[in-house]
């Protein structure tokens, strides 16, 4: 579906990428070590390099709350916040307006634009799920980006369907009769892919080259794309602020956060660690899993490892099944 073959367009080297003007202004209130602003800035790097102007619809959440406290804004792009559960529906309206006005020759600009809906895992996996599913099914030309920090962090670490099993959250806390969340994380990119949309990818800011290649493909895709981005939350995960990218890296190296894409129905795992690390490496740097390291809970970690293996095998099977002959 790409307008131009993605391989013909190269993302410039990092040195050049850092020279583009920042479109997310500093001074916003995101926490030190937050992954979300890193994700947004990486998105901007690709968009700048490829000459796209971005128009954003942002679900209620950390990013929205921290970047637009009236009368200030960090956004040097057009940006709209509507509510928590409707970023995808909102961008549907913006994109429809664009198409209608373009047809009538009434657009204020002839610049290359792309529409992005941005939400956390709450606004994506849970409350915004219906709105997202509708927009993907209708095939609007937009990119949905989920910054997945695995709980409702804006309001104080409440569990979501993106929270991994046994993580400590304030609405399913660890206690004498509880080990935290009782269910495994929802496989959201797989769910997005089940809509049969042209492009789906899972990314991590630690693997920025992979991130940029994927975001480039999303930009060049005509129709809906879904990007699931790993977003560290030092506050909610009880991790060290300076270890964000390290934890993101460990999430990938342990296969906890597999990097993969689904391009026109073809599944591809884009990074396969030669020797995947055990999940403990990822868990032990985060206070939300602290209780799992107490004597007697060894089996719980094994259980998480098995879920990781199950998903990893499933993804690799999908890759195998959909490989081009």
């Amino acid at each position: 579906m790409a307008q131009v073959s993605a391989s013909e367009i190269k993302v410039p080297p990092l040195k050049k990428l850092t020279n583009y003007p920042e479109k997310l202004a500093p001074g916003h209130r995101l926490c030190a070590g937050c992954g979300a602003s890193i994700i947004i800035r990486q998105i901007y790097m690709v968009a700048n390099a490829l000459g796209y102007e971005l128009i954003w619809a942002n679900a209620t959440g950390c990013v929205e709350v921290c970047t637009t406290i009236y009368p200030y804004t960090s956004w040097r792009s057009p940006w709209i916040h509507n509510a928590f559960e409707n970023a995808a529906a909102t961008i549907s309206g913006v994109e429809a307006a664009y198409k209608a006005l373009k047809r009538k020759g009434k657009l204020p600009t002839d610049k290359k634009v792309k529409f992005i809906a941005l939400g956390g895992d709450g606004g994506t996996y849970d409350i915004g799920f219906q709105s997202l599913s509708g927009a993907l099914e209708r095939g609007h030309d937009f990119i949905y980006v989920c910054y997945d920090n695995e709980a409702y962090m804006n309001t104080g670490i409440q569990r979501s369907s993106a929270t991994p099993k046994y993580a400590n959250t304030t609405t399913q806390p660890v206690g004498s009769k509880s080990l935290g969340k009782e269910q495994h994380k929802k496989w959201m990119p797989e769910v997005a892919a089940a809509h049969g949309i042209p492009y789906v990818a899972q990314v991590s800011p630690s693997h920025w080259k992979d991130f940029m290649e994927k975001f480039k493909k999303a930009l060049l895709t005509e129709g809906p794309s879904y990007i699931n981005a790993f977003c560290v939350c030092p506050r909610g995960w009880r991790s060290k602020e300076e270890e964000g990218i390290l934890i993101a890296k460990l999430a990938v190296e342990t296969n906890y956060w597999p990097l993969f894409e689904v391009e026109n129905g073809r599944w591809r795992v884009t990074y396969k660690p030669k020797n995947p690390k055990p999940v403990e490496e990822f868990l032990k740097r985060q206070g939300r899993f602290k209780h799992l390291f107490k004597p007697g809970n060894e089996g719980r970690i094994q259980e998480l490892q098995e879920e990781i293996n199950r998903r990893w095998e499933w993804l690799n099977k999908m890759e195998e099944m959909t490989r081009e002959e």
């Binding site: 637009t68 804004t73 204020p108 610049k111």
Partner: peptide, 16 residues
Amino acid sequence: SLLDVDNPITHGPVAM
């Protein structure tokens, strides 16, 4: 207009 990328506007900010 939200489509006016040359004059970017923030719609729907937080009002404290």
